[in-house]
């Protein structure tokens, strides 16, 4: 298995012929899909959340939009067509549709959990130092927001041991 070394030189400029293996591009596309879903979920949730949780949902929306846009740019730079967003998203199997604050928080936690899984999928497939940094940052942020929403919603355990894997 190839080993990545820390990037010591100039940062890789995606526009200068950066290449990613097909399975890495596929993993990034899945991460993009998770970001689309998270943006949508944050927007939906704001309609149901109490005032004291609105700021957190808005922060999440802002962070996921920025990540979504950066991920689309990255895909275009390596010659791939970014996957578009779906018109709407459903809560995971076994969760009820969003109809109040509690179900909105549960869906926010689920969207962040999905994001952690998708970015972990990128992390374990790429040797590209910059992409690894991006994937680790996204995985960590999703895991932190998932824990925050689980705590807010009283969903135990508040933190899973291995985000993206468990």
């Amino acid at each position: 298995m190839p080993t990545s070394t820390p990037n010591s030189g100039a940062p890789v400029s995606p526009s200068q012929g950066r290449q990613l293996a097909p399975e890495v591009i596929d993993a990034v596309q899945q991460a993009l899909s998770a970001e689309h879903a998270a943006v949508w979920t944050c927007s939906l949730a704001t309609a149901f959340l109490q005032q004291d949780n609105l700021a957190a949902a808005n922060d999440g929306a802002t962070a996921h939009r920025a990540r979504r846009d950066a991920t689309e740019r990255l895909l275009r730079d390596v010659g791939a067509t970014p996957r578009p967003a779906e018109p709407a998203y459903l809560p995971p199997d076994g969760q009820k549709p969003v109809s109040d604050a509690a179900s909105a928080i549960a869906m926010l936690a689920a969207a962040e959990t999905d994001g952690a899984h998708a970015w972990h999928g990128v992390l374990e497939r790429t040797d590209d130092g910059d992409l690894r940094r991006t994937a680790l940052d996204a995985l960590t942020n999703c895991a932190v927001r998932a824990a925050r929403w689980r705590r807010t919603g009283g969903i135990a355990p508040f933190a899973v041991p291995l985000p993206g894997r468990s």
Partner: peptide
């Protein structure tokens, strides 16, 4: 994470 082979990068990143 930045120094490990892929599989371990996933584990340690998690």
């Amino acid at each position: 994470v930045l120094t490990l082979p892929n599989f371990r990068a996933g584990l340690v990143g998690s």
